[in-house]
Amino acid sequence: MKNTVAEFIKMKGEGRRIAELTCYDYTTAKLVERAGVNAILVGDSLGMTMLGYSDTLPVTLDDMIRYSAAVARACSETMVIMDMPFMSYQTSVYDAVANAGRMMKEGRGQAVKLEGGAAVTEQICAITDAGIPVQAHIGMTPQSVNVFGGFKVQGKGEAAARRLLEDALAVQEAGAFSVVLECVPPKLAALISKKLAIPTIGIGAGAGCDGQVLVYQDMLGMNTDFTPKFVKKYAAVGETMTAAFRAYVEDVQSGAFPAPEHSFAKSDCSDEYLAALDAEF
């Protein structure tokens, strides 16, 4: 595989930026890999993008494994990182290792991701000791949305900034090979990136990170419910899809589809036999 943990560390040392995108299905993953993306994150954001929940909390371990396996089957060059869902690692170190192991065995990705800083370093240590690479995630951690009182920028103010830097250093010390910084003030994210030997992957954290990640439906303009401020829309795929669906409906209703070229020309039955069937029944 071209994109490995070692390669990501090398990329940071050489100043090469890491491009990461979310993805949740085989067909899209094939396209993402063809584009040369370094890593696919099978995020628990699928709770909202694929399952229609209002947040990530209802996503189960079985959900994550099913979607991860579909993505992994499409990838030979792209690192597949699998989100550990809410309460799959917080309950105990044993649960964290057992569930991460199940995700690796059944989800078939190359790494797992979990949210939290110093509070989850024991889990990170144990998972990495078991031979499973871990991407950490600090800042605005969506599984803690009820603690934060919503999806809000983190690390604002001197005390909060210090805690976030300490969290970043703690997950690095615990063995994480990279860390996602979500909704962090750009200057603080740049400082954290400077202090760490492992790559930082920003989402709403400015250009000073070592890489970036976005939800693919957001950057393609497919999410009609809400688009975060930090998203750059690279296409209006949602509008294109809606127009195509509308054209299909119109063709079906008018009889324009299917045309003769969309049908199988030959039949084993002659016109005479079909006429006889018509008369018989």
Rank of each mutant, 00 (worst) to 15 (best):
A197K: 14
A197Y: 10
I198C: 09
P199N: 08
P199S: 08
P199E: 08
P199C: 07
I201L: 14
I201H: 13
G202I: 00
G202Y: 01
G202C: 01
I203N: 03
I203F: 06
G204T: 10
G204M: 06
A205E: 12
A205D: 14
A205F: 13
G206A: 03
G206W: 03
G206D: 02
G206E: 02
G206C: 02
G208A: 07
C209P: 01
D210R: 00
G211I: 03
G211R: 05
G211T: 05
Q212N: 08
Q212M: 05
V213E: 09
L214F: 10
L214G: 09
V215D: 07
V215G: 00
Q217E: 05
Q217T: 09
D218W: 00
D218R: 00
L220G: 03
G221P: 10
G221F: 13
G221D: 13
N223W: 06
T224K: 11
T224I: 09
D225E: 05
D225Y: 04
F226V: 12
T227L: 10
T227W: 04
T227H: 04
T227Q: 05
P228H: 13
K229Q: 09
K229T: 07
K229P: 03
K229D: 09
V231T: 12
V231R: 05
K233S: 10
Y234R: 10
Y234P: 07
A235Q: 06
A236M: 11
V237K: 00
V237R: 01
G238H: 00
G238W: 00
G238Y: 00
G238T: 01
E239S: 07
E239D: 08
T240A: 13
T240F: 03
M241R: 01
M241A: 09
T242E: 12
T242M: 12
A243S: 13
A243I: 08
A243R: 14
A244C: 15
F245L: 15
F245D: 12
F245K: 03
F245V: 15
A247I: 05
A247L: 09
Y248I: 06
V249H: 05
V249C: 06
V249W: 02
D251M: 06
D251Y: 03
V252G: 10
V252K: 08
Q253E: 14
Q253D: 11
Q253P: 06
S254E: 03
